[in-house]
Design a protein around this nucleic acid. Sequence first.
DNA 1: AGTTAAACCTGGTTGC
DNA 2: TGCAACCAGGTTTAAC
Length: 286
Amino acid sequence: MPELPEVEVTRQGIDQPLRDARVLGVRLGKPLRWPLGCRAQQLVGTRLGPVQRRGKYLWLPLLRTDGAAAAPAGGLLVHLGMSGSLALLSGGATGPPPPPPGPHDHFDLVTDRGTLRLNDPRRFGAVVHAPALDRPPASRLLARLGAEPFDQAFTPAAFHQALRGRRTPIKAVLLAGDVVVGAGNIYACEALHRAGIHPATPARRLGPRRAARLLEALRLTLARAVAIGGSTLRDFSDVHGASGAYQAEAAVYGREGRPCPRCRHPVRRIVQAQRSTYYCPGCQRP
DNA sequence: AGTTAAACCTGGTTGC
DNA sequence: TGCAACCAGGTTTAAC
């Protein structure tokens, strides 16, 4: 489920409501992809700092307040995997207690401003404690990530340069996330369609003009998705339970056999790197 | 070194 | 209706 837009929508939903929230407790459900990496009790009494996003990861900084001074207590690195979502529930001092956890609710962060609950049926997601973003295990998980797509320092020329020498299909390069992060299967397909580039094109065959066009298409696609709440295929919802709307305006993803909105050719499905790729053979060129 | 499979886990859909 | 096979938003790890 969650690609960059869904993660960013989630970040925006929890950042302000949980700013400075005091952690009152932690509840763990079934095991996620990796263990938490610290004792739950270690988090109690800390306060939440500004929630950040790196790629498809969220970073929830925790500060320990010792009298007047605020000492870093590390933070939580959260990944939503394929089927995860976060919900912000009432609780603590703000209202009625949160509903009891369901069978797929695997992590609760109970605070005085509500309970942050991770629901993840497939359990590919994770909540991992680290002393800092640039220290293990966070640094190890983030080490291979490419540029942030909205980083203006990541220029079309830099993107073009990063694609040189890679004969892997451009779709697979976008998915790998070691050049630029954020696109998963939906938005990789959509960005390539918007750019008019065939997904099987070897990355190194993209010249500076098409590379620039693809980066711009990726930015427009991701920004549009963030603006309308991301995509909800099945599991995803924002922290208030609302669904995204992008899936309704996808041009090719999940639309095999239906006409391309740009040129009316039937959308085709192929498999690349064990994933379905949707594209239009009429207006996406190798 | 660069690319490609296998693995993690659950649930919904499709087909016999 | 029952059941097997296949599919799904991601990423790490091991193997060609």
